[in-house]
Design a protein around this nucleic acid. Structure first.
Lengths: 158, 158
DNA sequence: CCCCACTCTCTCGCTTAGCGAGATACTTGT
DNA sequence: ACAAGTATCTCGCTAAGCGAGAGAGTGGGG
């Protein structure tokens, strides 16, 4: 054993660090997109959340969007004001429950996002296409496991 | 083909979405840690960057920390003021080049971070320990590939 | 049928993270 | 020793997000 050497982590721990590095890079990438389009990171997160929901065919009222992003009602109003001013979303009264205001993403915003994130997504999909079934399952199992670990350790202390 | 059905993505695209979901969860987890300790997301990112550097035996001056986080000098000063006020870091004049001020992490901050992130890291390492060599290589190759794809598409448009 | 408690959103006033500009301290090449 | 360059900090400002509370709208019980 060489005590002068820094402790070298095993491949597993190194992989965890790698995952963290990737999340940092992705966050920076989002921030660049935001900056380039006169937005803030929160605005991008909001658009992503809205697109995810709309992909699932779900209508998103103002309050739900705020909850997804961890904002209070005042902050949520301000956020949607910004996005509306940029033409990325529209407010639509819910006719079922007229207290609620639904947030709709403008198709041009979707297009804008795909223009920016498309290449990255494409390259990643190509990378995965080179994997056989077991390797792909390993990657998915890893990501699923991490997600569960995060949500679990979140519920740990209320 | 059923046109009424939403387009079902292949397993590759679904995996990309899964990765995004994981990064979102990790960001929220970080935010919880920040909030619980009277900090902001940026402060946590700063601590992580400092710990990563110190693990590599690298001294971090104020300006470099700011650059890593994308802050300008004023913002960096304010950030370190906050962290110093909480006792998480110390400013130390670099005796080699007395213009520079190095930022040192307090051991108690490291401990605090490990207390919070340790369980998550541990569970992830355990998960990976169950993988054989090829599966582990697949996960690492995936993460490395994504990281490269991000940095590449970053350099695309200056 | 009409209240009254409840829910959803928005307004107001405030705190503070981060920016731009410029001042200050220190270093290095000539 | 000085000029040019680099690192950090100070000052004044913009605006993201919070707390509190004010409308709108809903729906169940008398």
């Amino acid at each position: 054993m060489d005590m002068a050497e820094q402790a070298v982590p095993g491949p597993e721990l190194e992989t965890v660090h790698l995952l963290r590095a990737v999340t940092v890079e992705l966050a920076l990438h989002s921030a660049r997109f935001a900056h380039r389009n006169g937005m803030h990171p929160t605005d991008v997160r909001a658009l992503i959340a809205l697109m995810d929901a709309s992909r699932g065919g779900e209508d998103i009222p103002v309050g739900r969007l705020g909850a997804l992003l961890g904002l209070n009602s005042a902050g949520t109003t301000a956020l949607i004001d910004r996005l509306e001013r940029l033409g990325h979303v529209r407010r639509v009264r819910d006719e079922r429950d007229r207290r609620r205001v639904l947030v709709e993403v403008d198709p041009r915003a979707v297009e804008l996002g795909q223009e920016f994130f498309g290449p990255l997504t494409g390259r990643t999909v190509d990378l995965l296409k080179g994997y056989d079934e077991r390797e792909l399952a390993a990657v998915r199992g890893f990501l699923t496991g991490v997600r569960e670990a995060v949500t679990d350790s979140a519920g740990q202390r209320p």
